[in-house]
Design a protein around this nucleic acid. Structure first.
Lengths: 198, 198, 198, 198
DNA sequence: TATGAATGAGCCTTCATTCAT
DNA sequence: AATGAATGAAGGCTCATTCAT
């Protein structure tokens, strides 16, 4: 079998892991349930990954990296807050995105102690915080807030809020209304952009 | 045994559950590990609670309610943002508070589907959101932001951010610096309070 | 349940382990097969022993110690070789003895590396070698062989031969004829005893 | 591929099996571990042998036969006990011999029931017993022991003792001192040879 | 002939839960 | 009211074996 096939199967396992995490949560995501979701034998997992910890770590890395690239590409150079909010809304509501977010949130919440998963989650968190920081900095530049807003703190809070929103949304869609939050953000963005004209 | 004694044991179990959740995370919190933490036989749990789900649900309710009362009491009538931030900081850094927060965050993250735990978490979330909403409303009243800030959305986001910060802090204290966030909040609060004088 | 009950169950597990080892060999002795033999749930094993390694180690110690005491008691003070051989024959052919010997031989053969089992097997081996040495020394004392026979080497070889005979007997009763070996030993013993009269 | 090449691969598998048995014991000798030792894919094993049982049977036969030929060649016609002991010592300490002995002992200990391995072990045992019998008979001929020593029993015991010594040596080199046993045997051999001069 | 991907069974161990005492 | 023994159901992981290439 060609190496491409190997990689293809690895992807199938990662994909099944994401789907299972989104559907059953971390607790319900076992080697067996992943295999059932993906339609393969549980043994396959261990052929491609050392153990579940490694699989989860790889999943975090894969999903987080893929999404982050997407976010970077779609928000690159955007310096209008209004425009940014719309881009983020589009990314957030893109087909299939909810599943990735749900899976990552589950893994973030389950990461503990000195496992490989925890290591990967730490790294992913930092990367998202850095991305958020750069983006926020770009936004406030040229506005009266440039020197007022503590950018790093804002970025850190934004990432945390995003995770928290996901956690609650996933638990009960009635608890948080992401669309409403985007709307509110849009209004705030308009105000921010207005200050830039000065 | 008198009802008082019965209640005392129930408390011991709840307390052991909180301590175990904080120390070992949801995954590491089993009937056995709770019993070990509390120094009682695992069977005791089933004498006071139907099953682990009920115990977890009761834990969320107990801790959330206790904390919320504390928060309400300590921030009642506070309408200065600066003062509020300091009160919150005190509550957050109070002795033992970290354990409660950690336990609750674990249970929030683990809640799924139609379990009794999920039900209780939903209820607790709503209560906190309501508390946050009332508090924020009090803050912005009498300021130019009164009609600008979407209070409910802000409250919902605040609760989510709080949970997210806890999740990350618990994973790696290096990822988020709560003290720094309080400092930043304090500065923003000062600005807000300044607008009220007008 | 009284502590006596606990000990009784421990015995049942040990006994089932011996029987399974004798019947299926080390490879066929799994937690499940032991449980089936003993008529209890596999989980019981882990309630009384940390893991299979500890169970096997305890089995070696228990059986080896029990048998060795029996051997010591029944050959104490015997200084006639002929008498000794008959005592040993009786011990060897005693009801149930074959099962104990088979089990111990399996565990000796399976012991490897730095496991708890290996540790226990080492200790048991030394005790049997010491017993054999003391016994042989008593036999040759007062005979012309007293200074000729390297007692320790003879003891070590005797223990090894015993294990080897068991290994082969267990594999195929046709390969070795223990009864014939006892007969031959009896004849040699007669010669030895004869030299003592001088 | 030419038959010679086929045979060469078969040899590589057998050799890898011996090395793995010696290094990891029977329990640690799996299709995977053998393949790793030999540097080939696990599937190769099944191309040359029906299953692991057949591989093990072939290994016993191969090693046992090879060694036995060596022993026969090197002790042929030797009728001095002293000389014999030295020849055996040389064979025993020959480079690489320990590995063969260890592998065979592992397989002897693991053989059970009606497997192909058991069959082969039985056959090998008989051949070694026959060899030992012939050799011992040659030794005692012409000595006063000729009619005293039960040759078959002695041979059977010798083979058993050899296996037992190997088992213990392999477990812990401190339990038995093969060199010391050879020394003791040499002294006994000298005595035996002395009686032949009469 | 040889490889590596895949499968399904089975093993060790843990865990929630029950129950006799 | 509390304990500790016991159970049965998973769960993670390994392994012998098969098979397409």
């Amino acid at each position: 079998m060609a190496p491409a096939a190997r990689e293809a199967t690895r992807r199938r396992v990662l994909d099944a892991t994401v789907r299972t995490l989104a559907a059953q949560g971390f607790t319900g995501t076992t080697a067996r349930s992943i295999a059932t979701t993906g339609g393969f034998a549980a043994g396959v997992i261990y052929y491609h990954f050392t153990d579940l910890d490694e699989l989860f770590a790889a999943t975090v890395r894969h999903v987080s990296e893929t999404q982050l690239e997407q976010y970077r590409a779609d928000t690159e150079g955007v310096d209008s807050a209004v425009e940014l909010v719309e881009r983020l809304r589009a990314l957030y509501t893109a087909a299939g995105a909810d599943r990735y977010v749900a899976a990552v949130q589950e893994l973030f919440a389950a990461a503990h102690a000195s496992t490989g998963l925890a290591e990967e989650v730490r790294a992913a968190t930092t990367r998202w915080q850095d991305y958020a920081e750069a983006t926020i900095r770009r936004l406030v530049e040229g506005t009266p807030f440039a020197d007022l807003v503590p950018v790093r703190e804002a970025a850190v809070t934004a990432v945390a809020a995003f995770l928290g929103v996901e956690m609650l949304t996933h638990l009960d869609p009635g608890l948080v209304d992401p669309a409403g939050l985007f709307d509110a953000a849009a209004r705030a963005a308009a105000l921010l952009d207005a200050t830039r004209l000065l």
